[in-house]
Structures are given as structure tokens and as C-alpha cells.
Design a protein around this nucleic acid. Sequence first.
RNA 1: GGCCCGGUCGUCUAGUGGUUAGGAUGCCGCCCUUUCAAGGCGGAGGUCGCGGGUUCAAGUCCCGUCCGGGCUACCA
Length: 540
Amino acid sequence: MALPAGAGVPQPAGGRRVDRPRTGNLLAMSVRVRFAPSPTGLLHVGALRDALFKYLFARHCGGQNILRIEDTDRSRYNPDSEREFIETLRWVGIDFDEGPHVGGPCAPYRQSERKEAGIYEPYVRRLLDEGHAYKAFDTPEELAAMREHQIAHKLPVGYFGGEWRDAPPSKVEAAEREGRPYVIRQRIPRGQRIVVDDVIRGRIEWDSDQIDDPVLIKADGMPTYHFAAMVDDHLMGITHIMRGEEWISSAPKHALLFDMFGWERPVFVHCPVIVGNDGKKLSKRHGATRVLDYMAQGFLPSALKNFIALIGWSPGDDREGMTERELIEAFSLEGLQPSPGRFDIEKLRWLNGWHIRRLSVAEFVDAFQGYAREPYVAEYWTQVAEPQPEAARKAGEIARMAEAVARDRGYAERFFALAQERTTVLADLPDVCGFFLEDEPPMDPKAVAKWLTQPHAPDLFQFLVQNLFRMNSEAQCEAVLREYAERAGFEKLGPVVHPTRVALTGKTAGPGLFELMAVLGPARMEPRLRRALEIARSGS
RNA sequence: GGCCCGGUCGUCUAGUGGUUAGGAUGCCGCCCUUUCAAGGCGGAGGUCGCGGGUUCAAGUCCCGUCCGGGCUACCA
């Protein structure tokens, strides 16, 4: 999508007019949304859902998805954060048409850089000139005292005028001459009804007397969210301000800003949020899990997207398991719900299994190999997961399995096929089918006690070892076991099947015995059977 | 305290005046079966937050109320 040169950039200082950018019809008609995180930490599920809804909406409409970094708070800035966001989103499969990492016609896409480029200045000046903003020289102490007074007298808390909103110009000039630090505040009109139309909630109204004058420019010269985000949204041609519902209360300030500039208001969409199990907003201190942790546990991006999309949105029918293509196709603002939802890990697990089962075997193996290659997987299992000594072992198991898979891809595909419908998260794979790769898989003591101590066990294993030469196919394996059962006088296959399963896998549960025997083949079965024979002899 | 948003099985949801309030997950049971899964079938689980009102008829419309949440920063 090409933008006319200079679109979205205010005229240089000489040129007077700063107005709606001439973005051309193509751009004006196309949906443009932005994910605008503050780079202060890790990407957790709350932010992911925010990014996901915009992504789905943009892709559904054939519009543009834009990444903008809102790094105007220097005290909370975290230099690693932006990379975390971009890499996590890349893993999830949410991509951007414009952003600091890919560029675009509205660059730069970091607000600190936009501030350096002087993009905001003409707009501040214009607001000041037109009386929509004013300088306020209150000290932090004065502000604190005012708030205390308001709380004590049960008054609305906030800056509703102070001494600067209506201060005479001479006073302001004097303060400025003294070099006193100041902020620039938006002058909210008084005695008005402010109406904001929200796509999800309909019309929301405020009495403008209830809305305090927000800081637009901080004392350090940096714009606040209230100012920078709105100016940028306009300059970048954002058509829909989609964000979490926690922004509803500042929506009137933002809508008013658009009005003050004479800009067309974008469509407001205040999405429901994901809350913690206590019903409270998700935050780092409140059960908000890093998205990468889900990756490390072996959740598929497709499942995570599917699951997150279904909290607060529904396609309108009974569909639950949906591919990315289906999500994009079905997504609409009408399906958005107003109430917050909770993150139910059990349902995510089910959905992950659902997505795994829909993969081809080759894709399934690729998914595991890609997973095992992710550097954060090892870090997660060794340093984040609990309980610790046990969790760390998982990292080694995953790495070893990945090596083995790479060494013999054909073999891997055969046993992955058997593991597929028994896998809920990729990290389970070593547990589910690790025994295929070890001549001496770890033995479950209970399984040994129950099945390898059976009186007929040594005889059974001896028989199997002797007949390995004719145990290549599934049918052959079954025939041999049935033959033994008959010879030993067992009416049912259980007494034969269970000890054999324990001998070969060390477990009581797993893929169908004949299937797994056929995959193992005689060469791999022999050492396992011989070991079991020894255990059975010594045990009984 | 003020303003604003929300409220359907534990959880995610369908539902826009007339349905025995549907689906999914989780739980339980049955079937399949050599085990575990997957799959199929069935069950328990909701006085649609509560109280009024409008209407022949209300989860759906109106009023009130309660509860939960958000904002109330020179954070986003």
C-alpha cells in the first residue's frame, strides 16, 4: 500500500495548516488498526488478545495491521521489551504491515523517535493557540495536596482547573520567565454532554464537568498517551481504535481531542479483557502469564489464537475448533461481547489437542522439531517451570528426542503417528513416545510389580524372543501373541498383552501394542524383551 | 467518594419478546477396546445477579437494586 509522499506528516514549521492527512481514497477506505504496546516488560496473554483481535479484524477486512511502540514513559522503559513483543508475535503468527521492524509510510513507529522528529510540536502549539490546552505550573506537592483535599471532602478527584486553567496570560508568562517547570493540559470544556459511540457498548455519555483536564505534555517534554496516541492515530490513518475496556473512561478525552483538531473521530471499539481467576484485570502481579511460557509448554500458535479469540468473541454459531483461516474469515466486530472472560487452561489444553490431531504426521513432526529448536524452551524448563529438579529433566528429554528425530526421520514419523492422538502439549511427547528411542526405557515400578512378576512372564518373554524373526508386521505380532495365549491357556489376551507392553515400553498405557511392536521391529524389541526376562526371572 | 463498564451451567459462550434456555470445556457413566487416548452416545450441572413493571408472553424492553470490575498518575 503506497501512501502519497508526506502523508501523515505535518507540514514543516513554515506551513500553517496541519489538517487531516491527504491519504487518498484507497487508504481512507481501508481498515487500519494499530497494536500500540508500551515496551515495559513481557508480552502476556492480555496484550496478546489485544493484538489478536486487531490482527483478525485487519486481515478479515483486507486492511492494515500496524505496530507502534508507545515508549513515552522513560521511567518504565525496558529495552528488551520491543524485541520480546515482536518475536512473540512472530511466533504466534501475528504479523504487521507497518512497524518499527518493517518500516512503512508513516515512519517512524516509535513515539520517542516521533517526538525527536518534532512531529507533535505543531499540534501542541495549535492546541495552545486555539485555547484547547494550557500550561500548568503546579508542583507535585501542590497536586498531592489538592488530591488530599478532594478525597477528604469527598469531591471528584482530579485536575478540574487548579489555578492555571484560567490564569491570566501575564501570570503564565511570568511563571515561564522564571523557568518553572510546567505541563500542558487539555482544556476540557465545561457544562457539556460528551457522547462517544462504541461499537460494542453503544452510546456512552459523560457530563464534561466530571472529566478532569489530562496532561498532554509532561514536564520533560514527552507527550502522554492521551496526546501522542491520538495524534498518531490520526496521522497514521487509523480507522478503528480497538483497545481494552480499561480505556473507556478516557475515551471522552480522546474523542474531544479529535473534535478540537477538527479531525474525524475513528470508530471506538472497547474490547472486553481477559481477567484472572479472581475476576481482576490481568497484570504481571496477577496471574498474567508470559505468552512465551505457553510456547515453551508446547502449545501450538494455532490453538492459542483459537482459544484467545474465543474469549470475548464468538463466530455466532457453535464452532469452537477453528483454523487461522476460519478465524479470519469469521471475525467480525458484531461477534464481540461486552463482558470480560477468564483464561481456562483446561479448555486451551483440549483445543491444543484438537489442533495437534488435525496436523499431518509430517507437520506434527515439524512442529515438534521447531518447538525443540526454540531457545526459550530449554530456558523455561530449567529456570522457570516448577517443581525444579524434575522440570529441568524435561529440557534434556526434549533435546534428546529432537536429535533422535533428526537422525531417523522415517522412524520418527511412524511413532509420532501413534503419539498424535495422545498428545495435548508438545512437551508431553517424551513421556508419550520416548520409549521408542531407548533400548532400556525407564520402568514404572507399579507396572513392573503388577505384570512382570506374573508366573508366566519369563516363559512369555522367552517365547517372544524366540519368535522375533516372525514379528515384523502388526498382524504377525498379533498372531504370535495369540499363539502364546492359546498355548498357555489364556482365554483373553490381557495376561499376554500387558506384560509385553510393560516389557517394551515400561508403562501400562500407550499406543496399541501390535502397532507399537510393528514400529519397534524385532531389532529394537529384542534388548527390551531380554531385559524384561531378567527382571521377571529375578522378581518371581 | 465520583464517573463509567459489566452480570446466561464451575469456565468459555449461543440467544435481539414465544426455545423443554442450545453448544463447548471440565466432571461422571456407557460403547469401542489389550491399556491410555481419540471418537461415538448419555448424564449431572442454569431459580438467565435480585426486585418490581410493560406485555397474552421477558434471559431478551423499562425502572430500581445488589454484586463484580475499570478509571480517578507528569503509566499506558
